[in-house]
Write a protein that binds this DNA or RNA. Structure first.
Lengths: 99, 99
DNA sequence: CTGACATGTAAGAATATTATTACACACGAA
DNA sequence: TTCGTGTGTAATAATATTCTTACATGTCAG
């Protein structure tokens, strides 16, 4: 959960810099969901959702887990990590030092 | 300093989602600078810097101030706002509610 | 064996962001 | 008046992101 390099911070910010991805985070808040379910809920195509989930995962905001449901079907669940970041001029200045 | 709408949060994240802009923030940390000075320091062209400063300003991270120096020349100074944001699943979920 | 779900990816189109180049103008010093 | 410094913008090129479409796979229920 602790970001060490500037690159990691960048991935975080890039992940957050999109309205659909914010919506995904909000939708995942409190309840994990599987991909198709989430695509219906957010109202976008599944391939598009995959792209967004990848970016969110890269930013360390969500984590995916492929499971086999009772009836033998593969289902991939996504849930939020419990991230907690503090943004101030200082934290950002420190992040850039490691450039 | 308090973000109320999702749009404002988005502007903030978009402002942060770029390595040059992080560098600008770091460079402005502790000391305000004028545009040409900052361009030299960060190592980019002035027109490009303008674009980045606009985005940073839109995100509420910096503020510009056009002044007349003693010798009558117009000089535009930029400085950091003292922002302070807290990022958790909850704060983001709340931001999206106002959609 | 077909239909209804699920996972996943590849290729290309559409759009947005980033970067460069070429302009304008103003002031003071040489 | 020319040079060096500062301001600012418009037009375009280069690149990256976002989105769509079309595919391929698998399981279960009917």
């Amino acid at each position: 959960m602790m970001k060490t390099s500037e690159q990691e911070w960048l991935f975080l910010f890039e992940a957050l810099a999109n309205p659909i991805r914010l919506k995904i985070i909000a939708s995942l808040h409190g309840k994990r969901k599987y991909v198709s379910e989430l695509a219906r809920e957010v109202g976008i195509s599944r391939p598009l959702l995959y792209m967004h989930l990848q970016r969110l995962e890269k930013g360390g905001l969500v984590i995916g887990n492929l499971e086999l449901s009772e009836d033998g079907k593969a289902v991939k669940y996504f849930e939020l990590t419990d991230f907690n970041f503090h943004l101030t001029p200082q934290t950002i200045a420190e992040a850039v030092k490691g450039l």
